[in-house]
Amino acid sequence: MQPLEAVLNHPAIWRGNDCARVAIPSISTGFPELDAALPGGGWPAAALTEIYAERPGIGELQLLMPAAARLTRVGRWIVLIAPPHIPYAPAFVAHGLRLPRLVLVRTSSAEESFWACEQALRHQGCGAVLAWIDRAPERALKRLQLAAEAGSAAALLFRSARVIPASPAALRLHVGRLQNRTVVRVLKRRGSDLATPIVLDLPNSPATPAGARRANHNVRLLETAP
């Protein structure tokens, strides 16, 4: 006879009262407060995550930077699909990403974006696929979830927070800001619901003292021709 504890720790056993920690392969977010609230202790790998940003410029992309930096350092690829603006390479380097592992894909329609997402997700070398697709029918999301399961990458879909319809995603987060701090609410996760929002101080945010101090130098850059 196995002790009950050993049986309950089996990965196939899911207990509704807690988020099952062993079952879900995840990539740590780099924020201990956030990791604690996520079922696998990080961004779920081989699964779809939706991130609803209240408005641009509130730190929704920074949430991913520590995980992305770690993935690129171990040689995994990060694919950015149909981002709304130019991903600014110097800032990505400042966040610790290895640039040669970053790929930008521009598309001309949502259909192309979904196709590119699927291709990238199915590739075993991808660590994370970040896509900006606002109008996503449920059928397309299900396909993405299946493609994510076929690979090992975290599928992260950024959408505007205007409408939050039902979705098959494994994890859904809402990112907002309150009193100069980033506030993450978990809308859906595997396991029980979480009512309390998570408040984060993003490390590289220029509003924090570290960032402000650097800007204080106020270097006047005068140059000569090369």
């Binding site: 390479a89 110097p90 790929v103 930008l104 894909v105 521009r106 140059e223």
Partner: peptide, 30 residues
């Protein structure tokens, strides 16, 4: 993977990034 994406989306639609030592923000990447 990159070649498959390029075959459908066009060559210039799939890119990597590079940084350039230039103080002008818009010239600091390519």
């Amino acid at each position: 993977l990159v070649e498959r994406l390029r075959a459908r989306l066009g060559r210039s639609s799939v890119q990597g990034f590079d940084t350039i030592a230039d103080h002008r923000p818009e010239c600091a990447w390519s």
